[in-house]
Amino acid sequence: MSEAERVHAAQGLFAETAQGPRLLGSKCRTCSTPYFPRSESCHNPDCSQSDLEDAAFGPHGKLWSCAIQNYPPPPPVVYDEPFAPYAVGLVDMPEGLRVLGRILTDDPQAVEVGGEVELVIEPLATSGESAQQLVSWQFKPR
C-alpha cells in the first residue's frame, strides 16, 4: 500500500517546524498571556494594551489531568475501527498554556496525572484503506 497522505485535522493550529512539532498560537507582548488557537486580541481584563504576536508552543508538557474516552463518540470525531478506548489529557505547558489533547498511547490506563508528555503530530486513526490520514496534535507520554 502506498503511503497515505497526511491531512491536518484543522488548518493553522499546528506545524512540524525545523525545531519539531509546535502548536501555533499567540502571545500578548504586554502581559505575556498565551493563546491557542491564535487570537486577534488579548482577553486579559488586567492587560493595559492588547498587543499580540504569533507564538509557537511545545514540545514539553505535564498532565494536569487525564481521562479515557470509553465510548465511540459521534462525528466528526475520528478513531480507529473497531473502536478502542483512547486517552485524553489536559496538559500544562511551560509557556503558561493549559491545552486539551489526545494522548498517544497503547495503554490508556497507564497514563497518570502529573506525567511528563511531549507534543507530537500524528494520525488520529491509522486503520482502513483510506488514501488520507487525518493528523492532529497529540501528547505522547515520556
Partner: peptide, 16 residues
C-alpha cells in the same frame, strides 16, 4: 475543533 482534532465530548471534560 475540539471534536475534530481531539475527540473529547462533554463527559470527557467532566472526567478530566
Amino acid at each position: 475543533l475540539r471534536q475534530r482534532c481531539i475527540g473529547l465530548p462533554g463527559p470527557g471534560f467532566w472526567a478530566l
